[in-house]
Computed example of a mutant assay.
Amino acid sequence: MTDLHLWLRHEVRSTERRTPIVPADARRLVGSGVTLTVEESPQRIFPIEEYEAAGCRVAPAGSWTRAPEAAVVIGLKELPDRPDRLAHRHIFFGHAYKQQPGAEELLRRFAAGGGALLDLEYLVDDTGRRLAAFGFWAGYLGAALAVLQHRGRLAAPLTPTSKEELDEGLRPAAGDEEFTALVIGALGRSGRGARVAFLTAGVEATAWDLAETRDLDRPALLGHDVLVNAVLATTPIPPFLREQDLDDPARRLRTLCDVTVDVGSPLNVLPVYDRTTEWTAPVRRLREEPPLDLIAIDNLPSLLPLESSTDFSAALLPELLRFETGGSWGRCLDRFHQTCRELGIDKGEFGDV
């Protein structure tokens, strides 16, 4: 391991309790020669004392802007709006490569400062398979919230919980009516998580994947009570739901959960809403008669921060241990450069990973 300095930043979003590096894996990184600085954070699921005990340095929240130039800043969700110039290499989910709102502005901040985005969504092996993802828990929680909403038991605001407590609330209770559920993208990580949650709730969900969506049976889709979308499109495909489908008099669909939340992207397969829902108001009514409720929360796994962080960190650790060798990180950097070229952004001197 060459001299690598990782800087684990505090998340500015108040509902983000996850971390990409848990203390046990921090200890392994430090033991391998990595310098790991961890910012204090009031909401991170693991207390700062556990990172100190693992041999990490401690820094104030938000101090990554003053980190040594060679440090690699790592987080999960969006950066704050300042500074205008981003000088470091940043590892996080940037949501910047599919024309999402604010994407070009973010990439221009990197170009202005000479930094680079190493987007975790594009950390893949040489076959294109994601190497670290929250998908299973996103699908699990998406289906769980859809079940609770459909049964009239979803309380707001949402608060983080444990899997045991969540599962207890999912189990059928006296008076619960049976309902049908459909998972699209059922064979992927998120789809598998959704199916497991439905089974916990006593529901055998219909499972659709590529074969079932090539020639979409819209009446069959609208004939389910609950729909969970776990498809993140990378090329244009016909949308699964359109505005006219919501007004179809034969629509039985009452609860829709979009796990992938690709709102604002031209590749969005559910272009029937224009903004996410939040922990404070997790459900939005799309139609009144017959009712149709939407759940579209873009950090679902943070509701199970311990389980989701532990799994993600375990998958990410091997990639961090070989950070300087290129490979998957080189592919991340290539994707960053490619998108900047496509947008005509002057990248300046980014250097090598």
Rank of each mutant, 00 (worst) to 15 (best):
D217W: 06
L6V: 10
G55H: 11
R18K: 13
L343S: 05
D176Q: 01
A116E: 13
L79T: 03
D215L: 05
E40V: 02
P266N: 04
R108E: 07
R331N: 12
F312K: 09
V34Q: 07
A53Y: 04
D262S: 03
L256G: 06
A194W: 10
A207S: 14
P157R: 04
P236K: 04
L117Q: 09
D352Q: 13
A67G: 02
R130E: 01
Y122T: 14
T280A: 15
A54I: 11
W64Y: 11
L6C: 02
R251A: 03
A112I: 09
L6K: 04
E165F: 03
L118A: 07
T310Y: 12
A71Y: 08
D167P: 02
A53P: 01
F93C: 04
I45M: 14
I91V: 15
E243S: 14
V269Y: 00
R129H: 15
S63C: 07
R218F: 10
R130V: 12
A230N: 05
I295S: 05
V269S: 02
T325V: 14
E212H: 03
E324K: 04
P20M: 00
A315L: 08
A133R: 09
E40Q: 10
D217F: 01
T234K: 13
D209I: 06
G114L: 03
V203C: 05
R13F: 10
R331H: 09
A296H: 02
G75S: 11
G348C: 08
G139T: 09
S328Q: 12
T255D: 12
G115R: 00
H5S: 09
R153K: 13
A315N: 06
L36C: 09
L8K: 05
W279S: 03
Q244W: 08
A59R: 10
Q100F: 11
E49R: 04
D217M: 04
P68T: 11
D81P: 01
Q244V: 11
R85F: 05
R108T: 13
L145V: 05
D225Y: 08
R85L: 14
T161A: 09
L246K: 01
H224E: 01
F93N: 06
C340S: 10
G348H: 09
P290N: 07
A26I: 04
A155C: 08
G326E: 01
A296S: 09
D119E: 11
R153F: 07
S265K: 08
F312L: 14
Y140S: 12
F136Q: 13
V226M: 15
A53G: 12
T35E: 15
R195K: 11
V34I: 14
V231I: 13
S41C: 15
D209T: 12
T255S: 15
A250R: 15
P249L: 11
